[in-house]
């Protein structure tokens, strides 16, 4: 208890790689009417570049909160996080947004596509926000890689759940991030579709050498990752 348990599925230590994510004493508390509730308590661990890591735990264990903290989507009560050597919470909100735009991609359980934009435009969005000139060509190419070359002009509501998640995967990889966070990426999909999306996600991850940090309660999915970080009642178990 109260410490990190990091296991290597094959028991061997990974080859020496630079650390891309480092968390130290990460704690998140929220105030409720009667007491302070600790959602994540003193999490300390690191993730090497190119690694794939599954954060696992039961519902309400704090895994999504931990992911939010690692990605700088939320601010911790205590502790620090470094992404690619840059200290996340030493920067302001906009600094963190810029860092995400540069280094991080996301895939969410509920896809989070903008309903006002077509598939192509959704994928172009992070490229345009980063000010890249050939956004449209790059987005089309990535959408082609996820098998949606013929659905570029479709709006999210015209796509199936699996297709929407594939657009989200394309959007996540479009900026060629070093690090990919995925929050229950198959949670809203049936098992067959979910499996296809996971295949795609891992294949693209491998191809690009991206570091993958995945939150899931699906054991089978967790097993496909190089390493697991288990969390229970806010405590990352050693």
């Amino acid at each position: 208890m109260n410490a990190i348990r990091e296991t290597q599925d094959d028991g061997a230590l990974p080859a020496v790689q630079p650390v891309i994510v480092r968390a130290e004493g990460l704690t998140k508390q929220v105030s409720t009417p009667d007491h302070e509730l600790t959602i994540v308590r003193g999490a300390t661990f690191q993730v090497a570049a190119g690694e794939s890591v599954a954060i696992v735990g039961a519902s309400g264990s704090g895994k999504s909160t931990l992911l939010g903290l690692l990605a700088g989507l939320d601010v911790p009560t205590a502790g620090r996080v470094w992404i690619d050597g840059e200290e996340l919470f030493a920067q302001d909100e906009d600094g963190r947004a810029r860092l995400r735009g540069r280094l991080v991609g996301f895939v969410f359980q509920s896809f989070q596509l903008l309903p006002a934009l077509t598939a192509l435009e959704n994928v172009m969005l992070p490229l345009e926000l980063a000010g890249l000139a050939d956004a449209s060509a790059r987005a089309s190419r990535v959408l082609g890689q996820v098998g949606l070359a013929d659905r570029l002009g479709h709006y999210p509501r015209q796509l199936s759940g699996g297709e929407q998640q594939r657009v989200a995967v394309a959007r996540a990889f479009a900026t060629e991030p070093k690090l990919l966070f995925a929050d229950e990426p198959t949670g809203n999909l049936d098992s067959a579709t979910g499996a296809q999306v996971i295949e795609l996600l891992f294949a693209m991850n491998r191809e690009r050498g991206t570091t993958l940090v995945l939150v899931t309660h699906d054991e089978a999915l967790a097993r496909r990752c190089d390493r697991r970080i288990a969390i229970s009642a806010g405590v990352v178990e050693a």
Partner: peptide
């Protein structure tokens, strides 16, 4: 609202 949160997530600054 949700779209704006997503854009923040994708790296958009508050000014964007």
């Amino acid at each position: 609202t949700d779209g704006a949160a997503m854009m923040r997530c994708l790296g958009a600054a508050q000014a964007d």
